[in-house]
Design a protein around this nucleic acid. Structure first.
Lengths: 214, 214, 214, 214
DNA sequence: TATGAATGAGCGTTCATTCAT
DNA sequence: TATGAATGAACGCTCATTCAT
């Protein structure tokens, strides 16, 4: 009779369940989320979940894929047609928004940390995403070097790893202590610092007022 | 008869159990570690654990206090009698060593992330440690500013938050993908970058031009 | 295939489990009955019990409600259309039967005594039942007084409390020492004595003066 | 140094522990009382208890013996040199006092009911006490019959059983619902009723001041 | 006479999963 | 497509008991 009794139902059971699972995993972690809880929040029975997913891990995998895809799409579209320095700035902004948005936060951090030291296929997925993210950043930096915007002697790999570190570490601190930790300000500070160091002498000298460096 | 039948036993049951619990929590997280597993690794029965600790949470609290104390001691003693810039460099080194040492790693990261969004007293403990760490870093930076070593217009609070972010984020990536992520190099890159930006023009030149340093 | 594999199964899992729980609680008390035992006697696993009841206390509550309802129904229907003196006699008989029947006995006594000094909602339920039972008896006595069958100066409240005491105390002794304690004879003696004292002089003399009775 | 650090210590460890055990068993029942609790309330360790008693059951036996002895002494001394009717009245008073006194109540009722259907030697003890109590009452009634104070055709055995029932049932209700059940009044009502029925016609009239009653 | 560490069995409960309908 | 009954293993925890000191 009533096609919509509960909340968050779209008619595509699998998709709805994935969304609710993401929300639960983000809040309680993978181990802290029971199939029962997901079923309850979705307004269905446990059996329905096992109709759509072979196991809890399978549901997790679907959730992780969904989020990774969405994150990568957002990052890429944020950089479209932007100069390298502007791209770095925008990526930091996207990460900050992503972390403070209503229903997404914590998912990646929680899952990434929780799956450390396990061998699930889902860990491989997350490792892959991190590698792709670092490679993406590195390519931006290299593009800046190729375009004579950034110093040619900078270690693009190390800077990409560092950028990623700043994002992850700032997110983590923000989740732990949101009242005392400013995620945006921290990432802004980071990008400023990195660009200061990356930009060619002319720009750098302008700011530092000095001559010789490198 | 045999004072040492199993592994890792020192005669102080409570202390041994705390050490083993830390090791388990670091590997599998709090929820992922069963009391049974700790008991098995310690070579005792579950009952023995409950003889020393009132609950699993109590054991966790003991483990957290132990590690926090040890970490803070190491950081402080690494900075003793060092100049501000050298202090920052040494703290990064301590963090890298701490993260790659045999039986300690992952504990703080795992627990910090896992306890996000809960209200256990242990979370408060971790929040406190993070705040103290940031305050410690900020004071070092301010000391550098007061001693005319660092630029006076730098935002010490933001830089302290950023330093902490870099450490946490680099640790996290290292744990997830140790073969492809160089923790030491990332943190070294970070400290170089930060000191470059912090140091006054004259000092920076002095250092990189060679000679005087230390 | 086989609709009836084990013992005492009706197809209504919840109802069956309640019946078996009553039987166990009656024999071993609440604390003395493990969920495992109930499951074993029901021929299911513990999990099945937790599918139907949220907790052991919930199962107890269901059991208590079931018995209270059944007892009150029996008492009321035994009194239907009977004169007050006859009602008292019949209630005593119902209590005696109730106490000596195959699968019911001891449940109320065990639970009542065991739950003394606790504050569970189930205790409130039992207190309520006792109060209702005493009120029911008191109303019967008052009806006898109103109908000039019983002495008007008798304390109906005290006699109702006393009647209840005799039933409970006789049941208790019977359960402890069934070979040496005659439940029926004790309650019969009690009702005789009470009616002797309650009945108006004329009626009493008729009985004791000999003749008619029997 | 300090021979008396805690509460309730007399120097006789076994006796102290018995007293505390009685208090615990009375409050929580046998199954509901852990050795740990008794030890804690006594201010000693569990080992100390096992030094004095071979097992929990052994401790229970000691507690039961202690209470039975004390109760029987009180009942007997209450009847010393009293006429049969007065004896019955005093026994009811002793029972009421016993049940409402500070540290004794509930013990007998709790244990008696809890041990129903078990075969512990302690049950035999309680059965024995109940039998002796009924025999004691029966002998008092017979003495009244022999002294022409009570009707010769009364069933002394049944009346003794009934007296005991009233006491146990009134105690039970009182413990369950002390605010709404008057133990003293109920037992007084009972003794009045029983003596009214027992006393010879002449005596009864003598007591109530004559013939006319109602 | 007492302690305190430790055991081992058991308890109430949770949970991922299966399956007949 | 979904339900709901049921399983079985594991979990955090309790407790009577033992034993070296």
């Amino acid at each position: 009779m009533l096609p919509e009794g509960r909340s968050r139902r779209s008619g595509d059971g699998r998709r709805d369940l994935t969304a609710i699972a993401i929300s639960c995993f983000a809040r309680y972690g993978y181990q802290g989320t029971s199939i029962d809880r997901i079923a309850r929040e979705a307004g269905v029975t446990k059996g329905a979940i096992y109709h759509h997913f072979r196991s809890k891990e399978d549901l997790l995998a679907a959730a992780v894929m969904d989020r990774i895809g969405e994150f990568e799409t957002r990052v890429q579209s944020a950089c479209r047609a932007a100069a390298p320095d502007e791209s770095l700035r925008r990526i930091a902004e996207v990460c900050a928004q992503h972390a403070t948005s209503e229903d997404r936060p914590r998912f990646a951090i929680k899952l990434m940390v929780e799956s450390i030291e396990t061998n699930d296929p889902v860990v491989e997925e997350m490792r892959g995403m991190m590698r792709r993210f670092r490679a993406f950043l590195r390519n931006i930096i290299r593009a800046g070097q190729d375009g004579a915007l950034f110093r040619a002697d900078a270690d693009a790999d190390a800077l990409a790893a560092l950028f990623t570190s700043a994002v992850i570490g700032a997110e983590t601190q923000f989740y732990l202590d949101p009242k005392r930790f400013s995620l945006e300000h921290t990432l802004e500070t980071f990008v400023d610092q990195m660009l200061d160091n990356l930009r060619l002498a002319g720009a750098a000298q302008a700011r530092e007022g000095g001559a010789i460096r490198d």
